[in-house]
Simulated assay, not measured.
Amino acid sequence: MDTNLRTKRRKPANKDEASAPEAVAGAPRSVDALRELVLRIGRDEAGLSLGGKAHAVLAWLLERPEEVAVRTITDLATALDVNASTLTRLSTKLGYTGFADFQSVFRDSLAERHRHFYTNQAERLVAGKKQRAHTPVNSGTSPEVEVVVQLAHESIVNVETFLARLSADDLRGAAALLAGAPRVRVHGLRQFSALASFLCYGLGMIRADVGLLDAQGLGVAEGLAQLQPGDVVVVTSVSPYTRSVAEAAKAAAEAGMTVIAITDTLASPLVPPARHAFLIPHDSSFFSNSMGAYLIFCEGLLNLVATHLGKRSLQALSRRERLITALGIETD
């Protein structure tokens, strides 16, 4: 556990902290250290005791570090069905000057993880390879196949996780918007430009006036300027988030467009401007963000849009087939 002493007092961040005592030496300065403290408290090794309710609240917070990093004390208290003062008291009990000091641990941890996301993922991959080299594999299964099997199993878990929290209302609402909006633009960059292109291609098969927000590379502002209130902008990005995608989502919402977000957690900056936000995990041993669950979700969403369009989607697909035949694009 981090036992560095903090010698400099800071000004209270809010009125809840104004009367809080100075943090005691040794207050954990990382989420891992905080988890370790909780374990020690549970074993009665920390010289500190928490009531059952406080312990449950702390466990809930530690299960959702990204949410704790970005949500307000009021939001978190509402989610926990407790008073905001309960979170302040818990923070000071653990040795922090108040909730803002406690929350800074989660914010610092999130920032650190974002800075080293890809190397951390690769380190896990290499460590897994070393472990497999010393672990007997199943009869008839090579280490190379085991790598693919592991990724497949991890994607299945991601799919099961997002299925468990899917909202039927959000699915219906998003499908109706994507079917009925005059124009639809899709925006994703870096790795998620591939997902944006896939979603754009699928929507373009069954309805007109669909495109990438910056298809010609002229700039997001120019793409948004072509839209009107009532048009839909679909944005997608996951941790570590692409700043410009989050800014585009916010700008689109402020300009009157309807935003649909495909992202990972409630802590995502794409969630606040979105009317419908779909949260899909990407936990895996892949050295970058796992895309499997995202592709399955998009296929499902496209099917819902096609169903909502009904005969119009059939007419669009039939017209497309005639053009493919006329141009001789496909071979037998």
Rank of each mutant, 00 (worst) to 15 (best):
V157K: 12
E36V: 05
S244K: 14
A59Y: 00
A215M: 04
I206M: 12
R35E: 15
E321G: 10
S30T: 11
L94R: 05
L39I: 03
S244D: 14
P65N: 09
H187W: 04
A13W: 01
P273D: 11
Y96H: 01
Q226I: 04
S197Q: 14
V147T: 14
C298M: 09
G223E: 00
R10A: 15
P136I: 12
K250G: 04
A33Q: 11
G202P: 00
C298G: 07
H276D: 09
Q103K: 08
L50A: 12
A46M: 10
I260V: 10
S109W: 12
P136H: 12
S167R: 05
L76F: 01
D264H: 01
C200R: 00
E66R: 09
S290W: 02
A69Y: 07
V238A: 13
L87M: 10
G128K: 12
L178R: 00
G204H: 08
I260N: 06
R207N: 07
R185L: 01
L301Q: 06
V245A: 12
E17I: 09
Y201H: 14
I260C: 07
F162S: 10
A174I: 05
G98M: 04
D169S: 15
R132M: 14
D32E: 13
H282I: 14
A23Y: 04
L34P: 04
I324Y: 07
T7H: 11
R71T: 00
T331Q: 15
D108G: 15
L266H: 06
T331W: 13
V137F: 02
G128V: 00
D209K: 13
A274V: 02
Y294H: 13
F117M: 09
E17V: 09
N4S: 09
T3V: 10
F198Q: 09
Q131G: 07
V126W: 03
M1C: 15
G98S: 06
G128C: 02
P21L: 15
V184M: 00
L279M: 03
L301E: 03
S318M: 03
G42Y: 02
R320A: 15
R71W: 06
V271I: 00
T119R: 15
